[in-house]
Simulated scan of single mutants.
Amino acid sequence: MLLEKAYGFQDDNERTPNGIETKYGLASIGKMFTAISIMQLIEKNEISLNQLIGEILPNYPNKDVREKVTIKNLLNHTSGLGDFFTKKYFEQPEGSIKKLKDYLPFFVNDSLAFEPGERFSYSNGGYIVLGLIIEKVSNEKYQDYVEKKYFETIRYECYKQLIKFSWWWKFNCIRLA
């Protein structure tokens, strides 16, 4: 290795310097991995864009979502599903959210904000449901599926940790020779 150095701050307010081991939250960048994974499952004819959620997740607790929302609606934020970033979510003890299904209580019983396909509204909850679809169809945990499909493929070793404020995870990746 010719140079190994970190620059900048991991926390601008506290002026905490970055280190070569600093982990960064990916936040909504994780949606890219989710969308690509869904499209690959479609390409393999395991699911389809116009498939209703209930056909894949027959026990999904919200009847309207089961019977009206398609994968396409979830992907393009036209499902009518809302968000899970509520006061109740932020009051959760750190470490209490360990799996995708742990997010469901924060939005699963909410009514659809509009009929699916009627309009656009950014939906983190919709991408939780897409993650659950990936788990169901692949028979793997979402995080394991993404790590295997993308990070192992490009020969990166990544140490992941689920963090409280994002169902996407923080990665510390090392390029393998």
Rank of each mutant, 00 (worst) to 15 (best):
E43F: 00
Y127W: 10
I56Y: 04
E4Q: 06
R175Y: 11
N13S: 08
K164E: 14
Y159G: 09
S166G: 14
L104N: 07
D144R: 05
S138H: 10
L75R: 05
L100V: 12
P17T: 10
A27F: 04
K23Q: 15
Y24T: 02
A113D: 10
N109P: 00
Y142D: 07
Y89H: 10
G131C: 06
F151E: 13
L130D: 07
K164T: 15
F33R: 01
Q161L: 10
E4K: 10
T78F: 01
K98D: 11
V69L: 08
T153Y: 13
P93H: 13
K87T: 09
E157L: 08
I42L: 03
G117W: 10
G19E: 12
C173A: 09
Q10K: 13
N62C: 04
D102H: 06
K87L: 10
Y89I: 07
K170N: 15
G82N: 03
K164V: 07
K98R: 15
T16G: 00
N76G: 01
W167T: 07
I36H: 00
S37P: 01
E140Q: 15
E14R: 15
K44C: 02
Y7A: 01
K72Q: 12
E43G: 02
F165D: 14
K160H: 11
L112D: 09
F114C: 13
Q40I: 06
Y103D: 12
I36N: 03
L132Y: 01
F171K: 12
K72Y: 14
Q143L: 13
M39I: 06
Y60R: 07
K72W: 10
I134H: 01
L81K: 03
Y127M: 05
L104V: 04
Q92P: 05
D11C: 12
T78C: 07
L52E: 00
A27M: 02
I174P: 00
I38H: 03
C173W: 08
N139W: 00
L57M: 05
V146T: 08
F85Q: 05
L112E: 07
P116S: 11
R66A: 14
Q92N: 11
T78A: 04
I36D: 03
F106Y: 11
K5M: 04
I71P: 06
K72A: 13
L75M: 14
Y145L: 12
L81I: 10
L2W: 00
N62W: 04
Q10R: 10
D11K: 04
P93Q: 08
L130E: 07
G19D: 08
L49E: 05
Q161C: 09
K44R: 06
W169E: 14
Q40A: 03
A177G: 14
V69N: 10
E157G: 04
L130K: 04
T16Y: 12
I174T: 13
A27I: 00
F85P: 00
S79E: 02
I42C: 03
N62F: 06
R119H: 09
I53P: 02
N45F: 02
A177Q: 15
C158S: 11
E14N: 12
E4I: 09
I29F: 10
D102Y: 07
G131D: 06
K72S: 14
S96A: 14
R155M: 11
E91H: 13
K5Y: 02
F107L: 12
F106G: 03
R175V: 13
K5A: 07
T70Y: 12
